[in-house]
Amino acid sequence: MTLAEQWVAFYTIVRKEIRRFLRIWMQTLLPPAITMSLYFVIFGALIGSRIGQMGGFTYMEFVVPGLIMMSVITNAYSNVVSSFFGAKFQRFVEEILVSPMSNNTVLWGFVIGGVARGLLVGLIVTLLSLFFTSLHIQHVGVTIAIVLMTSIMFSLAGFINAVFANNFDDVSIVPVFVLTPLTYLGGVFYSIDLLPDFWAGVSRLNPMLYIVNAFRYGVLGVSDVNVTTAFLMVGGFTIAAYAYCMYLLSSGTRLRQ
């Protein structure tokens, strides 16, 4: 296929992916909006007002970046895992497998679909947060870069999950039992400076801590961790996940008999 034809194929997948999550907005866009609004009301407005300052900011200001990032992560991941597994489950992944598209086109088509949903939900949550606090982004470049890299990384991770998933339980295991706990323990609701040294050390093993803090640095200008380390780590994981996805596609693992 020529480059122009690959572009058409890529655009076709991205368009289909975006139309898919917009068509089922009650399942994809509304739930995170409601959930995050509840977080803002309960943790930010009600409980937060009693907590006082955190890292030099009101509690609401402190939790907003983490909650936005949590939405981006779970939605980018969920979009790719559910869409690609659905295609496998109903076998219409074969439409893609018999076509002459390159593996890169297939992969990036699904990944950009995941990134689009992650960013759209992130934007919705950000707009909702403005009803509760004001955001003055300190480092625009850092903010955009970490959101983009993170949504790409988790879209790739969702793709890997979808390839190996055998049923719909396998699709929800990682978001429910891995992503959500790691995000909750990754400094969304607290600064690790509050933790005893041992637990602060353990927290530093949690990759979500770096992602949440890099984003918080972009928005608020403060971070519990070194932001360069965060970028290197997200970049490293993204490259590793991309390489593994390409291996899965080229070897046909779990896709071709």
Partner: peptide, 23 residues
């Protein structure tokens, strides 16, 4: 075996397949 999305329209299924071939 049938191997298309149950939720897509006839038009979308055919046109998307064309897109996968770069049309």
């Amino acid at each position: 075996e049938f191997n298309f999305s149950n939720f897509e329209t006839v038009w979308d299924i055919v046109v998307n397949q064309a897109g996968y071939y770069g049309l």
